[in-house]
């Protein structure tokens, strides 16, 4: 046997070990978390919601290469859809799953409506305009007192329930989120691997050349905006159902920035990267709670180091779920 063969074998065994390790850790964490005290479960729920948001925004930023800084708008749309349809506000109490469907549709439509005017924009211009959209939605919510309750928000939202099973305690929400995050991650990953995902990549690399091979970039971009907004909106529904209270404060510009940072730090265009990025940006502040006055400084330093050491993010674009699976089965 030649030395080339053995080195390939060793690398494969290494890959297999790494894949096994990553998956085993993930499974262990997922199973152990609900048995921890409620505080930890709540933190985990927050993390899962941000992962969901990251997966959604990554479609636009990571796949299609469009820097969107107003993503929180769709999160708000979903949250308020739930708040309006399942609370004493208008005395509407629609079933949870029905609201998810409605919110997904409303999210997609909002995504397309906000996408249409920015179709011709890229880079900094796109970032500024979408940032504006995010703020506009928050301000509208803040001012439409009769509809949204204004700055006071909407309280006493219904508990979520599916098929008669109530989902209100942190562990119940946790399992709901685990299922949704996995379903959405698999869906989005398959989307990335589909011909549409390849078209997004082409648009990201060279929009004009993409048109030159027959890609209707308008439609492909709107599909990205719509899918991304739908996921943001669904995350908003779950957020509202778990807090059972919504107010404009939850949808400030910082939220959008935080989600973008998760993507950039974890690894643009990579679902696994988003999980890592979210873990760092959501869990670290919790861990550093006791050093409250230092933690922003600490995060800032960490970010500077990461950007110098790993400018393309912690997990490279090419280390996607398929690598993990292939590593596991040694193919």
């Amino acid at each position: 046997m030649s030395s080339v063969d053995t080195s390939v074998q060793m690398r494969m065994r290494g890959g297999r070990l790494l894949s096994l390790l990553i998956l085993a850790t993930a499974v262990a964490l997922i199973i152990v978390t609900p048995f921890l005290p409620n505080y930890y479960v709540r933190v985990a729920n927050g993390l899962l919601i941000y992962i969901l948001l990251g997966i959604g925004l990554n479609i636009v930023i990571g796949y299609a290469g469009l820097l969107d800084l107003g993503f929180v708008a769709f999160y708000a749309v979903g949250a308020y859809t739930y708040a309006l349809l399942a609370s004493p506000q208008f005395d509407l109490h629609l079933p949870f799953l029905l609201i998810v469907v409605i919110a997904a549709a409303v999210g997609a439509i909002t995504g397309i409506l906000l996408g249409l005017p920015v179709l011709k924009m890229r880079g900094d211009y796109l970032a500024i305009v979408t940032l504006g959209f995010g703020e506009i939605i928050r301000i509208v919510i803040n001012n439409l007192d009769w509809l949204t309750g204004g700055p006071k928000g909407i309280a006493r939202l219904d508990k979520a329930s599916i098929a008669g099973i109530e989902l209100a305690r942190p562990t119940e929400i946790y399992w709901l989120l685990i299922v949704v995050v996995f379903a959405v991650a698999i869906f989005v990953w398959r989307m990335e691997k589909s011909i549409l995902g390849k078209a997004w990549a082409a648009i990201r690399e060279d929009q004009d050349a993409a048109r030159g091979i027959g890609i209707n970039t308008t439609n492909a971009k709107l599909a990205a905006f719509a899918t991304s907004a739908t996921i943001g909106s669904i995350a908003g529904v779950i957020f509202a159902a778990s807090q059972r209270f919504v107010s404009p404060d939850s949808f400030a510009l910082q939220e959008s920035v935080l989600i973008v940072l998760m993507i950039v730090i974890g690894g643009i265009g990579n679902i696994l990267g988003i999980v890592i990025g979210a873990a760092i940006l959501i869990l670290l502040p919790e861990v550093l709670r006791e050093f409250a006055e230092w933690r922003i400084l600490f995060l800032g330093l960490l970010m500077i180091v990461l950007i110098i050491v790993r400018p393309a993010g912690i997990v490279p674009r090419t280390f996607g779920p398929e690598k993990l699976i292939r590593g596991l089965f040694g193919k």
Partner: peptide, 27 residues
């Protein structure tokens, strides 16, 4: 070229116009 895509993907993406109609099925 689409620089960060693989050589194969640079060609595959050209199927977009004929295959996007059934993208839901593909997903």
């Amino acid at each position: 070229l689409f620089d960060q895509m693989t050589v194969l993907e640079n060609l595959e993406v050209c199927f977009y116009p004929t295959q996007v109609g059934q993208v839901w099925r593909e997903i």
